Simulated assay, not measured.
Amino acid sequence: MGMKSKFKNFFFVDEEEEYVEEYIEEQKEEPAQPRTNKKQPVQKQNVVSLQSVQKSSKMVLLEPRMYAEAQDIADHLKSHRAVVVNLQRINKDQAKRIVDFLSGTVYAIGGDIQRVGTDIFLCTPDNIEVSGNITDFIQED
Protein backbone atom coordinates (compact mmCIF):
# COMPACT_ATOMS: atom_id res chain seq x y z
CA MET A 1 0.00 0.00 0.00
CA GLY A 2 1.28 3.27 -0.96
CA MET A 3 0.97 6.60 0.57
CA LYS A 4 -1.80 7.44 -1.84
CA SER A 5 -3.95 4.45 -0.82
CA LYS A 6 -3.39 5.13 2.88
CA PHE A 7 -4.48 8.71 2.40
CA LYS A 8 -7.49 7.54 0.43
CA ASN A 9 -8.46 5.02 3.12
CA PHE A 10 -8.02 7.61 5.85
CA PHE A 11 -10.32 10.23 4.36
CA PHE A 12 -12.53 8.19 2.14
CA VAL A 13 -13.91 5.21 3.88
CA ASP A 14 -14.53 2.28 1.63
CA GLU A 15 -18.13 1.79 0.86
CA GLU A 16 -19.61 0.07 3.83
CA GLU A 17 -23.06 -1.32 4.08
CA GLU A 18 -25.32 0.75 6.25
CA TYR A 19 -27.27 -1.21 8.77
CA VAL A 20 -30.67 0.36 9.39
CA GLU A 21 -32.84 -0.88 12.21
CA GLU A 22 -36.52 -0.72 11.68
CA TYR A 23 -38.79 -0.46 14.68
CA ILE A 24 -42.21 -1.93 14.30
CA GLU A 25 -44.78 -0.66 16.77
CA GLU A 26 -47.30 -3.17 17.91
CA GLN A 27 -50.79 -1.85 17.75
CA LYS A 28 -53.88 -3.41 19.20
CA GLU A 29 -56.35 -4.31 16.59
CA GLU A 30 -59.63 -2.57 17.19
CA PRO A 31 -62.79 -3.22 15.27
CA ALA A 32 -63.26 -0.78 12.48
CA GLN A 33 -65.55 2.04 13.47
CA PRO A 34 -66.79 4.82 11.29
CA ARG A 35 -65.01 8.04 12.12
CA THR A 36 -67.14 10.96 13.05
CA ASN A 37 -66.43 14.43 14.33
CA LYS A 38 -68.36 13.72 17.50
CA LYS A 39 -66.34 13.17 20.64
CA GLN A 40 -66.59 9.72 22.15
CA PRO A 41 -67.81 9.62 25.77
CA VAL A 42 -64.99 9.11 28.24
CA GLN A 43 -65.32 5.98 30.35
CA LYS A 44 -65.62 6.71 34.04
CA GLN A 45 -63.05 5.17 36.32
CA ASN A 46 -63.51 4.11 39.90
CA VAL A 47 -62.47 7.18 41.82
CA VAL A 48 -62.77 7.56 45.57
CA SER A 49 -62.85 11.03 47.01
CA LEU A 50 -60.21 11.59 49.65
CA GLN A 51 -62.67 13.70 51.56
CA SER A 52 -64.90 10.70 52.11
CA VAL A 53 -62.02 8.60 53.46
CA GLN A 54 -61.23 10.21 56.77
CA LYS A 55 -58.76 8.90 59.31
CA SER A 56 -60.99 9.62 62.27
CA SER A 57 -64.66 10.43 62.42
CA LYS A 58 -65.79 12.90 65.03
CA MET A 59 -69.03 13.26 66.91
CA VAL A 60 -70.06 16.57 68.39
CA LEU A 61 -72.36 16.95 71.40
CA LEU A 62 -74.24 20.25 71.52
CA GLU A 63 -76.83 21.79 73.76
CA PRO A 64 -78.09 24.96 72.08
CA ARG A 65 -79.62 27.71 74.21
CA MET A 66 -81.11 29.74 71.35
CA TYR A 67 -82.15 29.32 67.72
CA ALA A 68 -79.09 31.22 66.41
CA GLU A 69 -76.87 28.25 67.32
CA ALA A 70 -78.60 26.06 64.71
CA GLN A 71 -76.25 27.38 62.02
CA ASP A 72 -73.22 26.18 64.03
CA ILE A 73 -74.77 22.71 64.18
CA ALA A 74 -75.30 22.80 60.40
CA ASP A 75 -71.65 23.79 59.90
CA HIS A 76 -70.54 20.67 61.80
CA LEU A 77 -72.76 18.53 59.58
CA LYS A 78 -71.33 20.13 56.45
CA SER A 79 -67.85 19.24 57.78
CA HIS A 80 -68.89 15.56 57.85
CA ARG A 81 -69.25 15.29 61.62
CA ALA A 82 -72.11 13.56 63.42
CA VAL A 83 -73.93 15.78 65.93
CA VAL A 84 -76.00 14.85 68.99
CA VAL A 85 -78.29 17.75 69.84
CA ASN A 86 -79.84 18.04 73.29
CA LEU A 87 -82.84 20.38 73.17
CA GLN A 88 -84.01 19.92 76.76
CA ARG A 89 -82.88 23.37 77.95
CA ILE A 90 -84.61 25.43 75.28
CA ASN A 91 -88.28 26.32 74.97
CA LYS A 92 -90.46 24.11 72.77
CA ASP A 93 -91.07 26.68 70.01
CA GLN A 94 -87.36 27.32 69.42
CA ALA A 95 -86.59 23.57 69.71
CA LYS A 96 -89.12 22.91 66.94
CA ARG A 97 -87.54 25.58 64.74
CA ILE A 98 -84.07 24.08 65.30
CA VAL A 99 -85.30 20.60 64.39
CA ASP A 100 -86.94 21.99 61.24
CA PHE A 101 -83.72 23.79 60.28
CA LEU A 102 -81.59 20.68 60.91
CA SER A 103 -84.03 18.50 58.97
CA GLY A 104 -83.53 20.73 55.94
CA THR A 105 -79.78 20.68 56.42
CA VAL A 106 -79.48 16.90 56.61
CA TYR A 107 -81.77 16.56 53.60
CA ALA A 108 -79.55 18.93 51.59
CA ILE A 109 -76.35 17.01 52.42
CA GLY A 110 -77.96 13.58 52.07
CA GLY A 111 -77.73 12.78 55.77
CA ASP A 112 -80.18 11.60 58.38
CA ILE A 113 -81.79 12.85 61.58
CA GLN A 114 -83.13 10.52 64.27
CA ARG A 115 -84.73 11.02 67.63
CA VAL A 116 -82.77 9.15 70.30
CA GLY A 117 -84.46 10.43 73.43
CA THR A 118 -86.70 13.06 74.90
CA ASP A 119 -85.69 16.20 72.96
CA ILE A 120 -82.38 14.58 71.93
CA PHE A 121 -81.60 14.14 68.22
CA LEU A 122 -78.79 12.48 66.29
CA CYS A 123 -77.89 14.25 63.05
CA THR A 124 -75.52 12.43 60.70
CA PRO A 125 -73.99 13.42 57.35
CA ASP A 126 -73.94 11.10 54.34
CA ASN A 127 -70.59 9.47 55.24
CA ILE A 128 -71.91 8.00 58.52
CA GLU A 129 -74.37 5.13 58.58
CA VAL A 130 -76.54 4.51 61.63
CA SER A 131 -78.05 1.10 62.15
CA GLY A 132 -80.68 0.04 64.64
CA ASN A 133 -83.28 2.10 66.40
CA ILE A 134 -84.26 3.13 69.89
CA THR A 135 -87.80 2.54 71.00
CA ASP A 136 -89.10 5.13 73.34
CA PHE A 137 -92.02 5.44 75.64
CA ILE A 138 -92.04 9.20 75.69
CA GLN A 139 -94.85 10.69 77.62
CA GLU A 140 -95.66 14.09 76.15
CA ASP A 141 -96.79 16.86 78.47
Rank of each mutant, 00 (worst) to 15 (best):
Q114H: 12
N127T: 14
N86R: 10
Q71T: 12
Q40K: 13
M3R: 12
F12I: 13
I134R: 11
F101Y: 15
S56P: 02
P34Q: 10
E69H: 08
N86I: 04
N46K: 14
I24P: 00
K92T: 07
Q71C: 00
Q71S: 12
D136E: 13
K28S: 09
Y107R: 13
V83M: 04
M3V: 13
V60I: 15
I120N: 04
V84K: 03
Q27L: 13
T36H: 05
S131N: 07
Q139T: 15
K4P: 02
A82S: 13
D14E: 14
E30T: 10
G104S: 08
V106Y: 04
L61Y: 14
S131R: 10
E129Q: 11
Q88N: 14
G110K: 03
E21Q: 08
R35Q: 13
L87F: 03
D126L: 15
E17S: 13
G2P: 03
R35L: 14
Y67M: 04
D14F: 05
M1G: 13
N86P: 01
A68I: 06
S56F: 14
Y67A: 06
Y67Q: 06
K78H: 12
L50G: 05
L122D: 02
L61F: 15
Q88S: 12
D72E: 14
R65H: 15
Q114R: 15
